[in-house]
Design a binder for these strands. Sequence first.
RNA 1: GCGGACGUGGUGGAACUGGUAGACACACAAGACUUAAAAUCUUGAGGAGCUGAGCUCCGUGCGGGUUCGAGUCCCGCCGUCCGCACCA
Length: 866
Amino acid sequence: MTLERYNPGACETRWQQVWTDRETFTTRTDEAGEKYYVLEMFPYPSGRVHMGHVRNYTMGDVVARFKRARGFNVLHPMGWDAFGMPAENAAMANKIHPRSWTYDNIAVMRDQLKSMGLSLDWDKEFATCDVEYYTCQQQLFLDFLDAELAYRRKSTVNWDPVDQTVLANEQVIDGRGWRSGAEVEQRDLTQWFFRITAYNDELLEALDSLERWPEKVRVMQKNWIGKSRGIEIPFQLTDPLDGCENIPCYSTRPDTLRGASFIAISADHPLAKTLENTSPELAEFCAKCRKLGTSEEALEKAEKLGFDTGLVVRHPVTPDILLPVWIGNFVLMDYGTGAVFGCPAHDQRDLDFARKYNLPVRNAFVMPDADRDVENEALVPSKSEQVLFKDHFTGITLATSQEAIDKTIDWFEEKGLGIGMIKYRLRDWGISRQRYWGCPIPVIHCESCGIVPVPRADLPVELPDDVTFEKPGNPLDHHPTWSQVKCPTCRGDARRETDTMDTFVDSSWYFARFTSPRAKTPTEPEVVNRWLPVDQYIGGIEHAILHLLYSRFFTRAMKATGHLDLDEPFAGMFTQGMVVHETYQKPDGGWATPDEVTISETENIRSAILNETGEKIEIGGIEKMSKSRRNTVDPSDIIETYGADTARWFMLSDSPPERDIIWTEAGIEGAWRFVQRLWRLVHDTHGKATYDPVPADLDGPALELRKTAHRTLALVADNIEGLRFNRSVAHIYEFANALTAVLGDKANPSQNLAPVLGEAVRFLILGFGPMMPHLGEECWRAIGGDGLLVDQQWPEIDQNLMQDDTITIAVQVNGKRRDELTIARDMAKEDIEKAALALGNVVRDIGDRPVRKVIVVPNRIVNVVA
RNA sequence: GCGGACGUGGUGGAACUGGUAGACACACAAGACUUAAAAUCUUGAGGAGCUGAGCUCCGUGCGGGUUCGAGUCCCGCCGUCCGCACCA
């Protein structure tokens, strides 16, 4: 009979329906089996699923399905990170309410995700903009407030005076608002903060326990927290100003104090603000500094500028040396004391500054072998390198900077001239957003009672529906009645807080909520403690710092307030790479989509033509799929054409999951052909394979095939466990090639091949099942397998089949491969040596040189040194 | 600027703790099947050389080093990418 092509369109929806009807993926906490919680970062409902989601969710699904097959009780939920600015931007642009825009998008994307055949428990689904969810978040906020983990203070923000809104750093382009084009101001607003710094040491220390996290993510978090030991030294002003007698400076390099030649303070330093009142030029300079923005990057990249305040301080060790006080545009008020001493000889930035403003350059130390003064390059050896200090006040001469730093701090503390201290770069987390589409902060401002938390009985503070986006600013502020409220304490007229929470708050505890998504309280402790931590979390590297750090903080804060009982939310973390695609640039500079061009290749030279006009078009760089470059491919188009399994297989093939994957038409077609090939291969075993027990005494091709089957499944399992999906894929290919070869071998003498073939084809289906689940079910049914594939356990691997009795090792002469040797496994060293030296190629290559040494690494290699 | 990662054939990538570099796939070429095309199957291939089916030399971004042996470890460069606190 002729075999019909595998038709994913019909099969995939059918199997998805079967899984849904049987509630295959509905998780119950009380079910048997060790728990396994696999989670992919939930998507922002932007409108359509993109290829990055396909990759992310495919990986998670392979892990989830594999762990199910391994007997675990798997929790694999999905939801929506649904608050955020794009909904408000859409509201402004298209007059759609953010709520309907968001829920409409969710409906579309849910269908798209369902078409991928993911083993998700959709009963657990929620969106962070659901009232039930943000009500719980408001409860958490109130608990944090009680625990003094939430508080209010002033802080500086980027303010767009036209749009009347706070801007993200990325929304400030060349000092102007991205939408309005207005010059951005730095404004002090009173804002809500979470006291993440209460845990800074703990968040740092615990990083070492996160063994299944990528090293680079841990390093990034470590640097972000930025623990440093330094000293705070007050520099005495020669003439006190407004009662201020000294300027405390924080430094991590007090060993360079001898070279100090100026003090630089932030434009936001209290002294600078005082001086602004008396000097218009200085005020203007400070205003210019503030325009630089609030990002560290902007500060560091900008040209270093200063303004001499005319104030003078004394050097703390040698009081007759006087240092000028400058305002520097590179000094951050938020870090340390907002004032630093400049040491040009040992800091390039300070050196540039000193040369520009003609300030002295004095070495604190020199290299032991080169006693030279610094000219145009600062001397910045590593802290562990020995240097020669010049008349150091503690008497140090030859020492490392680290030793000198420690000694200097001790010296200052003894004399009472300064205080050694540990500082962190990590700042408290500002959560106030002057926006509509977010979780309202549940507090009330009362003129007589101050800040009053909304009583828990009055929760939720719901977002009003009737808002307008025509006026600039926060719609909650413009609402005629929403913010008017009676004070819960004194019953007088009061005003609701109109700030909403940063959307990072929403995503900082959703993983806990998934364990009891319908509970009235944020979590149910018995349930959440049963499921957490997440055993495998998968998402983009862009979240390596903030989202993960905030979630780690939230878990601790929720522990402190009794919502759960652990510190670290994610036991295993994996960051996957992006999906990238070629770009096609038209002669007029515009971009063409992949659909609009046809690629041809001759003699390894690729060229593209624009379908519409037939003209040649330039193939541009390979870049992250983005709307602006128009190099996106819509997952739904791919699934419609090739099926979900083909898309999933391609996503797993070739590229290591942590690296970027290049989406190509050729690649997806290759995956498609393999899907068809597997389908044919399974059918070709019909009539040749039996499903009886495999006899114990096998030999020849039957034994070889059986070894391949068992080894492949062991390797596939191992590589899925290690999240090396591309290698699992390669082993499936090799297995399929081996099976094809056996089936094609007409003169096969083995008596016992039929049951071995049966086992092999079963193993093959079980092996690719987690990756291509629909094809797997279809094949499983075709061979008459019991029940559903999805309910099968991963097969037992026979350890006796893992190793061959004979092995082939390479034989080198002087490190160059000259021959190979097939020998019994674990043969004695002396015997291997003898056999190697007898090889023809080896004898010839050595010639009449004496054999000086023979290195034998058993089961690996022989190297003859002659 | 600071911090981090990466660099292997025409392409994506394999190579476990230093032990046969290029598994597997894509693309390509030749052949089979076909009226033809598609699909499918078979075969080939890192580069250079040698009167040639075997062997030699070169080869993992570049330059050094350690070692019997380096894609892998160390030092110094070059290049590409990512993050930098209100995008999610």
